[in-house]
Design a protein around this nucleic acid. Structure first.
Lengths: 176, 176
DNA sequence: GTAATATACGGAGAGGTTCTCCGGAAATGC
DNA sequence: GCATTTCCGGAGAACCTCTCCGTATATTAC
C-alpha cells in the first residue's frame, strides 16, 4: 500500500472515531471526509460502507478485551473474573452512542466482524467454563444480554452507577 | 378537526406502521407519505417529527400493556405475574426493528411519550411491590434491562426461544 | 342553495445526505 | 529521468428531510 494511501486511511479512521463519538449513528460520512481532509471518494475507496469503518475502529479494542480476558483466567475467583470481564465488555460496548453495541451484536456477512465475535465469544466461554457454569448458561446469550444492557445504559442520561446496577440484575451466578 | 384531515391522519399512521415494520429507523418519511397517498407537507403538518409519529403509534399498545398489568395484579403468584408481564413488555418492545425499544427508553421532552413511560413504570412498580421486592430492585432499572434485552433479541436472526432464555438470565427473583 | 370563511392539501424547492465515476496528480519501479 | 501503477478529489446523480404558499375543499352563515 502506498504510504500516502495509508496516511489517508489513518486520518480517516481518526476522524471517524471523533465523529462517531460525537454523533453516533447520525454521523455524516461527508463530515468525516472533510475533517480528515480528504475527498468523499477517498473515504469510500478505503471503506466501502459505514460498517467497514466501524469494524476497523472496533477491531483494535476487541484485541485488548481478549487480552484482558486471558489475564483474568489467572484470577483466584472464577466468578469474580467473569463479572469483571463482562463489565469490561459492557464498558467497551458503551461507546460511540450505541454504535459499537449495535455492531457487535449484528453478525452480518463481514468476515472481520465475525472474527471479532469469535474472539470475544471464546474468551467469554473460557471464563464461563472456569466457573463451572452450573446453570448451563449459553455464552452467546450472556454476551447478548450484556450488549443489550450496555446499549440501554448508554442511551439514557449519564448515570455512572447505573451500569453496575443493571449488570447486577443478571442471574446471581454471573451478576452478583 | 375536518373529516378529511382525520382520514389523512389515519392513513398516514397506517402507512407508517407498515413502513417502520419493514425498514425500522431507515424508513423514509417520503415513502410513508407516498404510501398514504398524501403530500409530504400533509405528513409534516400532522406529525412534526418522526418521533411524534412513533409515539402516536406506540401509545395504543402501551394502554394494552398497562391493562394486562392490572389484570396480572390478581394473579395468584406475584413473582409469576411479574415475569409474565415483563415478557409482554419485551414482546411489545420487539417490534419495528428496534424503534419501539429505542423510543421507550429515551425519555426526551415529548409529553405524550413521558406519559407512556409513567404508565409502564407505575404498572411495573405495582407488580414488583407485590413480590415483596426483597432485593430492592429499582423498577426503572428492571425495565431498562428488559428493553435492552428486547432490543438485542430483535437485532439478531430470529430465534423464538431466545427471548425466554435471555429473560431467564435476569436475577432469579424476577427471571426464573 | 349560495356566499364567505376557515382549514387542509400537495407539490415545488432548498439544503442536506450517500455514494459513484473518472480525469488528473503523485508515488513507485526501472 | 521516465513509464507505469496507484491514488486522489471533486463534480454530480439520486435520494432524503422539511418548509412555504397558492390552491382546493370542507364547513358555516345566511
Amino acid at each position: 500500500m502506498r504510504v500516502d494511501a495509508r496516511q489517508n486511511r489513518d486520518r480517516v479512521l481518526a476522524a471517524a472515531r471523533e465523529e462517531f463519538a460525537a454523533h453516533g449513528a447520525g454521523a455524516s460520512l461527508n463530515k468525516i471526509a472533510q475533517r480528515a481532509g480528504v475527498g468523499p471518494g477517498t473515504l469510500y475507496r478505503h471503506f466501502a460502507s459505514v460498517q467497514d469503518l466501524l469494524v476497523a475502529i472496533i477491531a483494535a479494542d476487541v484485541d485488548t478485551l481478549a487480552a484482558t480476558g486471558r489475564d483474568l483466567l489467572a484470577h483466584p475467583d472464577p466468578a469474580d473474573a467473569l463479572r469483571i470481564w463482562l463489565r469490561a465488555v459492557a464498558v467497551h460496548a458503551t461507546s460511540m452512542r450505541g454504535l459499537v453495541a449495535t455492531e457487535l451484536l449484528t453478525a452480518g456477512t463481514d468476515s472481520a466482524l465475525a472474527a471479532c465475535h469469535e474472539q470475544i465469544r471464546e474468551t467469554g466461554a473460557a471464563l464461563l467454563d472456569r466457573t463451572g457454569n452450573p446453570d448451563h448458561i449459553d455464552v452467546t446469550d450472556l454476551l447478548t444480554v450484556v450488549n443489550g444492557i450496555a446499549w440501554a445504559h448508554e442511551r439514557l442520561p449519564a448515570d455512572p452507577a447505573r451500569l453496575d446496577r443493571l449488570l447486577g440484575l443478571l442471574s446471581s451466578k454471573v451478576g452478583r
